[in-house]
Amino acid sequence: RPESRARPPTRAAGKRCRVHPAASPGPGAALPRKAQGAPVTDALYAAGFQSSSRFYAGADAMLGMAPARFRSGGAGEEIRFAVAACSLGAILVASTGRGICAILMGDDPEALVHDLQDRFPKARLVGADAGFERTVALVVGFVEAPRLGLDLPLDVRGTAFQQRVWEALRAIPAGVTVSYTELAQRIGSPNAVRAVAGACAANPVAVAIPCHRVVRNDGGLSGYRWGIARKRALIDREKNDA
């Protein structure tokens, strides 16, 4: 196993991210150690993959069964996903047959895939195909150039209160920020500021539901699950790109 894990290349701001291609080891290469309960990363590197994102991009084609489905016996629905790299780091986009169910951002592609598995432990995770790459490109294009807009169907599940907050978030225009207090007032629950902040933190689709547009009463930044630096970058980019 390599001492350091490969990271996807980071593109300069304004350039489109590229979905990582599938790797080429033979069918079933990662299956034996995974079947024995070895850690996911051990199975990846034992199979000769140079990065975990390459494994997950091709896992379904190689194994006929994605890692999450292997663990759960195939229960639940099918979720397509891909990991790409952009100016803000790694980004994972996942979709059910009804719409986007997760947009996750971070520094480590493997951590994003584990996050997706934790969110949908009984789903069948399917590596991206050429058709899904267009969806990923639309998400990445919006991250890099907010003026392009993002109009994709969503399949997000939450409590009735969370859904109200998320709908209110989608009504905030790019380049505009509101406070948690103001957002609570907009949904008719002025005393539920902390609950509103919790709903923002529970948002599973970064940028598509723009929780990064919510700030403290004094305009300061706080409470962004994908990192304050990314929140600041998204807000600044939207203001400059409006």
Rank of each mutant, 00 (worst) to 15 (best):
S51M: 12
A38S: 15
A208K: 03
A66N: 12
E167H: 12
Y56V: 06
A43G: 15
G99T: 10
R7C: 02
R54D: 05
I187N: 00
I172P: 06
T159V: 06
N191Y: 12
G219V: 05
Q36G: 08
V126Y: 05
S52F: 08
R54T: 13
A23T: 07
E110R: 12
Y224M: 03
D155A: 03
Y56R: 01
A23Q: 06
F120R: 02
A201D: 13
Y45P: 05
P25G: 04
Y224N: 03
G223T: 10
Q117E: 13
R186K: 02
V140Y: 00
R232V: 09
P153H: 00
A206C: 03
V176W: 10
E133A: 14
D218E: 03
V136P: 02
A75F: 12
G76C: 03
T96M: 00
D118F: 06
P25Y: 03
G188F: 00
L152I: 01
E167S: 14
Y224A: 05
R54E: 15
A38Y: 11
P2V: 09
Q162L: 03
D129Y: 09
V126S: 04
V178H: 07
C200T: 11
P9N: 03
R232D: 14
A242R: 15
A85T: 13
A68Y: 04
E238W: 03
G220Q: 10
A111E: 14
Q117R: 09
R213M: 05
A47L: 10
I209H: 02
A38V: 10
G99H: 07
L169I: 08
D151V: 02
A23N: 09
R11H: 14
P2H: 09
W166F: 09
P153G: 04
R237G: 01
I172C: 06
N191K: 15
S4D: 10
R119N: 07
